[in-house]
Amino acid sequence: MSPASASPSAQAARKALADRLQNLRRDAQLNGRQLSALCGWHPAKTSRLQDAKIAPSEADIRAWCVACGAEDQVADLIAASRSVESMYVEWKRLKSAGLRSLQESYAALYEQTQLFRFYTSDVIPGVLQTSAYVRAIMSRSAGSRSDEDMEQAIATKMERAGIIHRGRHRFLFLLEESVLRYQLGDAAAMAGQLGHLLTVISLPRVSLGVIPFAAPRTLWPVESFRVYDESRVQVELVTAAVNVTAPSEVRQYLDTFAELQGMAVYGVRARTLIANAIASLE
């Protein structure tokens, strides 16, 4: 994908990569001509790379980092470069193929992942959702989609949710208490959803923690995110799904998840918070 045809989000990601390269050059106290000479290419190429007018190849990134004495940055920058085109996947484009196709697009990633980490500050995590809860969420984004498309999407999502009962996958869930209180759908749908949490909390490969309103916080609620093993993070925004693969950035999310875990309650205390949320619906 050329810069001219890239989506605004993908272009923003490419510009961020170009800025990181430029900062490495400045930190090494090299001007453009000096770096070009060390890399063995024309100064015009350096300018185009820094202005995000062309995308760097992996060989370009390695040469740039070696010239700047920043070999330790190669892995991160290559990971960022590889994910520029896929880092921002626009919901409009994904949904254009139908809600069912959107749900099916996750299948391979879910089957390949061994350890899932879910932190949510807005909705119940997808693999823990009931069909009524899913319907309440999807009805907002369905737009002009047919009822059949939505029902097929719900069925596909529920089939994927069955992953918590099969294979060797392990799941770590962290929910802000507010997630238990946000009412999506009617009271019956919400009560059913919360009751489902009380069922899955006892599954052997599932850990479900709730961060209480009253918990002393060392970190404020952040955006909801999912970590697949230790290689990929996905953050859902209003307009896009952001995929993070750079090792240093994935590590930041893992550290954030660990810090949030320290604020959560589990077992009987988590069950009590869920039960109180159910009682509040009455």
Results as ranks from 00 to 15, higher is better:
Trp91Arg: 02
Gly126Pro: 03
Tyr106Gly: 09
Pro125Glu: 05
Leu77Val: 06
Ser105Arg: 07
Ala136Pro: 07
Arg140Ile: 15
Arg117Leu: 08
Lys92His: 09
Glu58Leu: 10
Arg140Gln: 12
Asp76Tyr: 08
Ser57Pro: 07
Met138Asn: 03
Ser83Ala: 13
Ala97Tyr: 02
Leu128Met: 07
Ser83His: 06
Ala67Ser: 14
Ser121Phe: 01
Ser131His: 05
Ala108His: 15
Glu71Leu: 13
Glu85Lys: 05
Ile78Gly: 06
Lys92Cys: 12
Asp122Arg: 09
Arg82Cys: 09
Gly69Gln: 11
Tyr133Leu: 00
Gln112Phe: 11
Ser141Gln: 05
Leu115Thr: 13
Gly98Tyr: 09
Gln73Asp: 15
Ala108Gly: 09
Val84Ser: 04
Ser81Leu: 14
Ile61Phe: 08
Pro56Leu: 05
Ala75Met: 08
Ala80Arg: 11
Tyr133Phe: 04
Thr113Glu: 05
Val89Pro: 01
Arg135Val: 01
Gly69Lys: 09
Ser131Phe: 01
Val123Trp: 02
Asp72Lys: 09
Asp76Ser: 01
Ala132Leu: 13
Ser96Arg: 06
Arg135Phe: 00
Lys95Val: 10
Val74Leu: 06
Thr130Arg: 11
Gln112Cys: 10
Ser131Pro: 06
Phe118Leu: 00
Val123Arg: 00
Glu58Arg: 10
Trp91Gln: 02
Arg140Pro: 02
Ala80Ile: 13
Phe118Val: 01
Leu102Cys: 09
Glu104Gln: 14
Arg140Ser: 15
Arg135Gln: 05
Ile78Met: 07
Gln73Phe: 10
Met138Ser: 05
Glu71His: 07
Glu71Gly: 08
Val89Asn: 05
Arg100Ser: 02
Val89Tyr: 02
Gln114Phe: 11
Ala97Arg: 06
Trp64Phe: 15
Leu77Gly: 07
Ile54Tyr: 01
Ala107Tyr: 06
Val84Ile: 15
Ala75Arg: 13
Leu94His: 13
Thr130Trp: 09
Glu111Gln: 14
Val134Lys: 00
Ala136Trp: 04
Asp122Lys: 12
Leu109Ser: 11
Val123Ser: 04
Lys92Asn: 14
Ala79Asn: 13
Val74Gln: 08
Ser96His: 03
Thr113Lys: 03
Leu102Lys: 01
Ala108Asn: 13
Leu77Ser: 08
Ile78His: 03
Cys65Trp: 06
Ser131Val: 08
Ala59Ser: 09
Val127Gly: 00
Arg93Cys: 00
Val134Gly: 00
Ala75Thr: 14
Trp64Leu: 11
Val89His: 07
Asp122Trp: 03
Glu58His: 15
Val74Ile: 15
Glu104Met: 11
Thr130Lys: 09
Ile124Leu: 07
Arg140Ala: 13
Met87Trp: 02
Met87Ile: 00
Pro125Gln: 09
Met87Asp: 02
Thr113Ala: 05
Ala79Gln: 14
Arg82Val: 12
Arg82Gly: 07
Leu99Ile: 01
Leu109Gly: 03
Ile61Gln: 05
Val127Ala: 04
Asp60Phe: 07
Ser81Ala: 15
Met138Glu: 10
Leu102Val: 15
Gln129Trp: 00
Pro125Trp: 03
Val66Met: 11
Thr120Val: 02
Ala75His: 13
Asp122Gly: 08
Leu94Met: 14
Val127Met: 03
Lys92Asp: 11
Ser96Lys: 03
Tyr88Gln: 06
Ser121Gln: 06
